[in-house]
Design a protein around this nucleic acid. Structure first.
Lengths: 142, 142
DNA sequence: ATATTAATGCAAGTAGCTTGCATTAATATA
DNA sequence: TATATTAATGCAAGCTACTTGCATTAATAT
């Protein structure tokens, strides 16, 4: 995606096409898997200060441009969402590597809702896997 | 579970049966769904100070007595784990109510591992649903 | 009864994130 | 194109959940 496309995307959602927001979206586009705030802040090297990285990401989530991912540690991770389907992730418990897990059984929500006694609707779910990636498996055998 | 059983359980895992740890386990046993640290601290009214609620819970998790649950907000939740099978949860996005979702398709891990290109093992997963509970659905209709 | 050491309380510290506010810069309007 | 408007920003201070250090206490071993 070119800078001009990012500009168009931002304006379409009611944002101003600022250097900071353009850099942030570009950084997100650059990543195949969810990125931490820390990493994103590094990638945009000062195009936005920390407080505004948070503010911008939250506004992107609200606008549906970005998804916030929770991977069980204290941090938030973010991934670009436009034209990228809902999916899950595997996280390496040793090195933190994240891989996308494509696809999602639509049946999950239905089954859960049926089993529930006190809920009338399910809006979303989060499914994350934790395991060992090959490099770390090798390391631990050594 | 009686206090003497809790004492036995704690000692079996190498802990001392202190007032604080006994109260904590009792509080966890008392809850049908995961509890926040805040709530647990309230239930044990000073039997442990905040720092030791954290320390004790983490040691319980390490010993397999308790499970830590992540529900997408900043906090950790804990549930008693002994003789209680792995399961999932639904969280009300309006009021925070938590309900257990019994059962878990064993196939989830297998499917994810097969689809993965860089992982050699999956150790665990977390699956949490987010929706609206009946009381909150009614409120929002009003 | 005494010795040992896990467990505790208290205080200080940290990480991730949020908020307030004056300033800057992107867009709208003349 | 110049000016007005206001979203966006930088900086500083603040907040919440959680962690760590250490002297003291109390549960267990002897």
């Amino acid at each position: 995606m070119k800078t001009s496309d990012i500009t168009t995307l931002l304006r379409a959602k009611g944002f101003r096409a600022t250097q900071g927001k353009i850099a942030l979206i570009a950084a997100l586009l650059d990543s195949p898997s969810p990125e931490s705030i820390e990493t994103l802040a590094g990638k945009i090297k000062g195009a936005l200060d920390a407080a505004n990285v948070y503010r911008s990401l939250e506004s992107f989530v609200a606008a549906g441009l970005v998804r916030r991912i929770d991977l069980g540690n204290a941090k938030s991770y973010y991934e670009f969402a436009v034209d990228r389907k809902h999916h899950h992730h595997i996280v390496c418990t040793d090195c933190g590597r994240i891989e996308d897990v494509k696809g999602c059984s639509e049946a999950l929500d239905k089954t859960a809702l049926k089993a529930s006694t006190s809920f009338s609707a399910i809006q979303s779910h989060s499914l994350e896997f934790f395991g060992l990636c090959r490099p770390c498996t090798k390391k631990s055998v050594r």
